[in-house]
Design a protein around this nucleic acid. Structure first.
Lengths: 213, 213
DNA sequence: ACCTGAACACCGTTCAAGT
DNA sequence: ACCTGAACACCGTTCAAGT
């Protein structure tokens, strides 16, 4: 959970000693640059400059570049889990419409913040075991999904398959859809908001009802 | 389609002029290195060295590093489309079991060649419009899937939803599952071959029958 | 036509030194 | 405690020069 600090401007402030919370300032600067152009094209030196410090200052607060990226990915997982929780709370009709709404929200999050979603699952952070809090945030996300599925099973409105398999199926569908959309890997006429919302709704509905008949 | 050339050894051969097919030799060297350690940790200079040429020789055959990576991704899409075609031909019982078998094969491909799957969908090649043959190979893959779905609809064993939506739903599920497995992003006890096969089979079966009941 | 080697403008990371 | 600046071992890419 980040404090509502004013996000630093991108032009380097005068220079000299940084006042206080350089750790969060670096994370905010990195987050803004990545949201604009993606992880692949942002360097630690550029992030440091945006935060107004020398290109080695970050090592006082993060073990390396990967650790800084992991912090941003973790933020993304937390936000996505929050969106899930809100969606569940605000969607009437029980587990089935709730799971469908969560699926659409997942895809919406990805399309609205493509570079963050890509970072969250990119090989820029190959070894998650070195970042336990990131791992934790991701598991929290998975558990919000599992909670809805378990409720649906208890209610008898979802298939009584093993919880892990049901959850992974739902997650895989929306994750795959989001990644294909965000990476512009699907052959489609135009990928605007209306198209995305429509496609997410249809895919999620098809998952619930099944492709076969 | 690549010629069955002997793949070059990784230790740099004597040096000097390269005999003949440096373009393919570079692609083979790159492919081998990427399969071992992933795109993120392979440099063009290292690839050139593995192929036994200077670190600038590649520019005679590829516009830049991205173009070389695109060639490898394209190879991956072609192989995956081939696997799909073979799977369809070899699976009895019509479109429904064929689509399910294709889905399992997609996940299997990803788990067997994780770094190739990741390259195929990575932002290492952000702009596909600059690589039309890569785009084409990806569309061919999508069309083999669409063909099975269309056959199922004609037969009346699959939902009569729009073909594009049905195909994208199927693709998204297996793509998402493969990416989550390969990236080790799912909380699971052990991700061995048996686990993967079981999970792929269950997820694909759940997609066909639907999560709701 | 095909390849090399020097050169350029970058990287991430380390480390001694400054305040 | 926190940050800087020089230094190291790398990158991708260009370009004149060699065969």
């Amino acid at each position: 959970m980040s404090f509502p600090m004013a996000s630093r401007s991108r032009k380097p402030p005068p220079r000299g000693y940084h006042h206080g919370d350089l750790k969060n300032a670096l994370r905010d600067a990195a987050s803004a640059l990545i949201a604009e152009r993606g992880v692949e094209s942002v360097s630690l030196r550029e992030i440091s400059q945006a935060a107004g410090v020398s290109h080695t200052a970050a090592y006082r607060h993060y073990a390396d570049k990967q650790a800084l990226l992991a912090a941003i990915a973790e933020e993304g997982f937390r936000q996505l889990a929050d969106i899930n929780r809100r969606t569940i709370a605000e969607t009437p009709g029980g587990p089935v419409p709730q799971l469908m709404a969560c699926g659409r929200a997942y895809v919406r999050f990805g399309v609205q913040r493509p570079h963050v979603l890509q970072l969250m699952f990119s090989q820029a952070i190959p070894d998650w075991s070195a970042h336990p809090s990131l791992q934790q945030a991701s598991e929290t996300l998975a558990q919000t999904l599992a909670g809805v599925v378990a409720a649906g099973q208890a209610q008898g409105t979802m298939q009584p398959a093993p919880l892990g398999e049901m959850t992974l199926t739902a997650w895989s569908l929306v994750h795959g859809l989001a990644m294909l959309l965000v990476g512009r890997r699907i052959p489609a006429p135009a990928i605007d908001d209306a198209f995305v919302e429509h496609m997410a709704a249809q895919c999620v509905a098809l998952l619930m009802r099944g492709l076969a008949r």
